[in-house]
Design a protein around this nucleic acid. Structure first.
Lengths: 208, 208, 208, 208
DNA sequence: GATGAATGAGCGTTCATTCAT
DNA sequence: CATGAATGAACGCTCATTCAT
């Protein structure tokens, strides 16, 4: 997953992995440190040698990822996108969707923890806004403006556009890969085309 | 809020209100029954006279709302919408958005609890799918088809349309009223127009 | 059972009966007053209107019986026995056994409570010794002496004789009617004959 | 007492001893785990580190004794008895009584718990019947038959004989050492002779 | 007199955290 | 370093008892 690199001992990696899985599965408050210790194959005391409290463990699970992995991950994608200078914004969307699918399914455990615990831990919220929110949003505005300038996207305040595009993509991935993976879905390509279609032309009949 | 009516004693209402607020604020697992009792101004034992366990209290907080309030609430709106037979689907969307804003802001505490605890309580999930999911989704398909038949909405499988429209509206409300209420927002009317615009015509330039 | 007479209301009798059965079945400490109330078909508060505490209820269940019923019951038997002036002590034993069987099986619930709770409640112990122990033991000594004087029972200190006779009878009834009622037992008459035989002649061979 | 050996830590031994004494003194249900902890000089949590529940503690207090100590203890005696092949069953009885006295007074706390809790815990009953009941009773039948064959004990079904002998011995020890230790008792030897006398020859006059 | 909602002390148990080994 | 026994505060919950109705 995301604890591979770094200069952590095997034990520490085991603790982080076990904690991540359990926090995602049962929630932070409902997970006991003894469960984490058992799953990680270490003694309870060992956890507290590395992390000064259970909360510290949560922040460690969540924060370095936020800072070191997710931030760069997202940014790298965006730079790729911008560097690639797709001829058409639809290609950008397609690339974005593909990338988001990988990212979300790769990090589903981590994202569950963030979504679950964000509202309850002020520190997490600050980190999230700091390292992802502002930065990314600004980048995205740049992307939108880029294609607006190319005459491919309608003019107007980018924020509403970002919100619509973002939420459409997000809700598709959420529905297909997280909430209802067992439902009958069409081929990925067809579904993605459909979304891009809708985003491009809207749902209204042309003659309106 | 939503525990007004019914034939509950003052104490019971106090317990439900306190529990709702605390569950929303700190999460179910991190809220202790003694906190609820203190906030409700009753003895801890009193809680267990009315609710046989803490979990039972959670289900009571969440379930009757789901069954008695939300279901009818949403359905009533849809019936109104269908009965009203808006001349144009844009009016339907406008009504829908206005209604959703009220609903979400009115029930924000309740919704937070549901979203937070859904993954951890099988019973909740069942209730949610049972009382909201199936029913509502089917109704919405009807609405989409209605406007498709009137020639106002493009043909095509309604589910993708529902997803895009729904997530756009939801993400707007979430952003404006829950996540970033302190940000600088334009007048409600303008923002809503913008969303409907985007949903209708898409983000692509017409000549594409 | 034994709460028939007296000037108790229906409710009070119900409470006493329910308490007796539950104390016998689950033990005093493991029986809750709410269980007693439910079984008696009264409100919890009603119990405390009649008995000032749970312990008071136990003493009421146990004590008046001890004083008013059991004492006279046993004494009456002994007087019957003495009045009847059986020709032979074996007839006395036979009558005694028959009577004890009735008594024990009639009062098995009550006796269970006494045996279970006696060690834990000083008051009960005092009552038991006071009202049964001394009195009865003295009477029994008289009976033994009576048959010793008639030349039917060997001379010697009556206490050891009482103990052996009493415990033999008691252990027979206990085994047959309480502990192992489902075992294969011979006819009552045969078993009783056997016991009296053994008590009369002992287990040693005559020529010894 | 009986928790001496084994590889238990000091704390564990303390908990077991405290629990044994309190269960014997006040009964299982009326003893709180906090009392046990205080008496044992440990934190309450420590109890649950070693015994997963209060009931588990009861079974631990009672069960290994039943299995490891009492079973072999009794059996060893019987084997001794059989191996010794007393010339006369009276010597067997004498040995038996002496041994029972030691056993009962040594294990009085433990026996009180067993007697008190047996009716309320199915598991205990099973253990008791399994490890003591069947086995021992069968052995005893063998002993009786052995002396019957030697012509020292009258023929007849051994069970009634066992019951009479057993209950006589038991009631003597119970009376002298448990219930009324403060009464005026004759020398042990004299009392035992008297019992054996009565058991051998019965209470009836010989010419009967 | 009877009720049952309300109480709050105390229960058995869990758990994050500490520390001697 | 790693361990796991020990801790004690806090948890969810039960219960005998009270009291307004």
């Amino acid at each position: 997953m995301f604890n591979d690199a770094d200069n952590l001992t095997e034990k520490q990696k085991g603790i982080l992995t076990a904690a991540t899985e359990l926090f995602a599965e049962k929630g932070y408050a409902a997970t006991s440190t003894s469960e984490i210790a058992k799953k990680a194959g270490v003694a309870e005391g060992t956890i507290f040698r590395h992390y000064k409290s259970k909360k510290d463990l949560l922040l460690t699970v969540v924060s370095p990822v936020m800072i070191k992995i997710i931030g760069p991950y997202i940014k790298k994608d965006l730079y790729n996108v911008l560097d690639a200078e797709f001829d058409h914004y639809e290609d950008f969307l397609r690339a974005m969707i593909a990338n988001r699918i990988n990212f979300i399914t790769d990090n589903i455990l981590f994202l569950r923890i963030v979504v679950q615990e964000l509202p309850f831990h002020e520190e997490l919220k600050n980190q999230a806004v700091e390292h992802i929110g502002k930065d990314i949003f600004e980048k995205l505005r740049g992307v939108i403006r880029y294609y607006q300038e190319k005459g491919q996207i309608i003019p107007g305040h980018p924020d509403a556009i970002i919100r619509m595009v973002g939420s459409s993509i997000f809700s598709y991935i959420l529905s297909r890969y997280v909430l209802f993976p067992e439902s009958a879905w069409e081929d990925e390509e067809i579904e993605v085309d459909r979304i891009i279609q809708l985003l491009s032309n809207g749902i209204g009949m042309i003659d309106e």
